[in-house]
Design a protein around this nucleic acid. Structure first.
Length: 215
DNA sequence: CCCCAGGCGTCCA
DNA sequence: TGGACGCATGGG
């Protein structure tokens, strides 16, 4: 275990002590998690919840029913989540993929890299959305990187401003034990921190850093 | 009024 | 390969 591993583990422990277990992802089923992953793209989770509740009222957390509903009608239901026309199409495409691949993915009968590339081939599913679905819906050990994660890493000087998604993902995966539940909790805790802290990446402030002394 | 949220695809250099 | 831009609602 090198210095970076130790720093990351210490952050994890402090986040866990401060925020407690997050029990992510909020969602009752793998398919609902995948829907949430699409709807939350650049969108506040409060708005996503409204959209998901609209879908639940119509029993649309169901791949076959999602396939059958008219796109414009679907867009109207998910309106609170923003980008509703875009996301209605993305839900349709994700669902088409789901019907063909979800069974194998849930049983992890396909290698992680292959499954990840398969998800990434769906228009509207990028790296973060793919990793969220893989980690939280299918329990593949892949680390999820988002805007909060980037801010967290920059704030603590663990990576530079122009680091790519891949750079950040690998930082975690090469320095931490490969464990689905650990990855899930760590990402959720970073989001919990991000939601309660300011957006500045520099200079560090006590509130954002919770008075931690790590540098 | 302002700014932004758990991104992504397209376009263009 | 990478930066600018459009997509859009709801909360602070």
């Amino acid at each position: 275990m090198n210095a970076t591993s130790g720093i990351l583990l210490e952050f994890y422990e402090q986040l866990l002590a401060y925020f407690g277990k997050q029990y992510w992802w909020p969602g009752d089923s793998p398919y609902e998690i995948a829907i949430g992953a699409v709807l939350t793209q650049n969108t506040n989770w409060n708005n996503v919840e409204k959209a998901i509740n609209n879908l639940k009222k119509r029993n649309l957390i169901d791949a076959q029913k999602m396939t059958n509903i008219d796109s414009n009608e679907l867009a109207e239901l998910i309106k609170p989540s923003g980008y509703f026309n875009l996301k209605a199409n993305r839900l349709k495409m994700m669902t088409k993929w789901w019907q063909k691949n979800a069974d194998r993915a849930l049983k992890q009968h396909v290698n992680l890299d292959l499954m990840r590339n398969s998800l990434l081939s769906v228009k509207g599913i990028g790296e973060e959305t793919a990793d969220s679905i893989l980690l939280y819906a299918f329990e593949y050990p892949t680390f999820v990187v988002d805007a909060y994660t980037k801010r967290f890493l920059i704030r603590h000087h663990l990576i530079n401003e122009k680091a790519s998604y891949h750079d950040m993902k690998l930082l975690f995966e090469t320095h931490l034990a490969c464990d689905v539940y650990f990855y899930r909790e760590f990402h959720a805790l970073i989001v919990a921190l991000g939601k309660t802290s300011c957006k500045k990446t520099s200079p560090r402030c006590d509130h954002c850093c919770l008075n931690w002394h790590l540098r």
